[in-house]
């Protein structure tokens, strides 16, 4: 994309005063490609319109939610992406009401989704994901995740994961899963580390596949600002490191090649 198109789009969205948030980004993948990215959200009646722009693709989405106060909420949305490499569509619906939370997500693309948006997975074709959470009691939650995908070459695979979380002062999670016939066990821990509310969540999936995810979130002030540090490491070798604070976000990742994505978000949503 011509940088002038990118800058003009940003200026129009900003200047129009309609944008709720604008995120400017620069993405680079070593010896591969480099692109500016622009994300914008705009209110459209009871919905939010989300736009994504990168060098060779454009995405538009429409998202809505119905709130039931403390009882729960329902969210729904669709998105379509079009680029030189192909096109893709996705739809999602999810929500929580009382003791149940569930979501369904369906994606289809004719190219790798990372070609339509750099932040998406490097896979194409069809993907269906279903997740659910059910409260067995005030402090016990059962989780279920099911996934199915058929890639661009026509190969199909499935995933399934069942977990049990017990919340005391800290939350302990135990589970079992299968990912394309590879079995693994899941162990998780989540808890506050200090009086200020610094929170650590760590999840290890171990067995015929290995994946560690750890997220540290520390409040930066009395408002809603946080410092967030997220690390994932997996075998076969892949790793990501994410750092987020004051609207700034950096994502570094390795999955056979190195990439870096720097973003800055301006919010116009009327802070506290």
């Amino acid at each position: 994309m011509n940088p002038w198109v990118y800058l003009t789009a940003a200026a129009v969205l900003w200047g129009s005063g309609f944008a709720q948030s604008l995120t400017f980004g620069l993405y680079g993948r070593l010896s591969d490609r480099f692109t500016p990215t622009l994300e914008a959200t705009l209110p459209l009646g009871n919905f939010d319109l989300g736009a994504r722009l990168q060098r060779d693709a454009l995405g538009l989405g429409l998202f809505g939610a119905t709130e039931f106060s403390a009882l729960g909420r329902l969210t729904y949305g669709v998105r379509a992406g079009l680029g030189f490499a192909g096109w893709g569509v996705e739809g999602r619906v999810g929500g929580t009401v009382g003791p149940v939370a569930a979501g369904l997500e369906a994606l289809y693309s004719t190219t790798l989704r990372s070609h339509l948006w750099v932040g998406d997975e490097a896979e194409g074709g069809l993907r269906l994901d279903l997740w659910g959470r059910y409260r067995l009691g005030p402090r016990e939650t059962l989780g279920l995740g099911l996934g199915f995908k058929r890639d661009l070459a026509g190969f199909s695979s499935g995933t399934g994961e069942l977990s049990y979380a017990l919340r005391q002062q800290q939350t302990y999670t135990f589970g079992l899963g299968v990912d394309d016939s590879r079995l693994y066990a899941l162990l998780g821990w989540r808890g506050e580390l200090d009086e200020a509310g610094t929170l650590l969540e760590a999840t290890l999936r171990a067995g015929q596949l290995w994946r560690l995810e750890a997220t540290l979130t520390a409040p930066l002030d009395e408002g809603l600002s946080n410092l967030k540090l997220r690390l994932t490491a997996a075998y076969p070798w892949a790793a990501t490191l994410e750092l987020e604070a004051y609207g700034f976000r950096a994502d570094a990742s390795y999955d056979g090649g190195f990439s870096l994505w720097l973003r800055y978000t301006l919010s116009f949503g009327g802070d506290e």
Binding site: E67, S69, A70, L71, G72, R73, T96, P99, A101
Partner: peptide
């Protein structure tokens, strides 16, 4: 909302606090 670990912020004039 505990189950989804979400904090939904709404203007007071618009929010329905009743629920129950």
């Amino acid at each position: 909302l505990f189950l989804t670990n979400q904090l939904i912020i709404q203007p007071r004039a618009k929010a329905r606090v009743e629920g129950l």
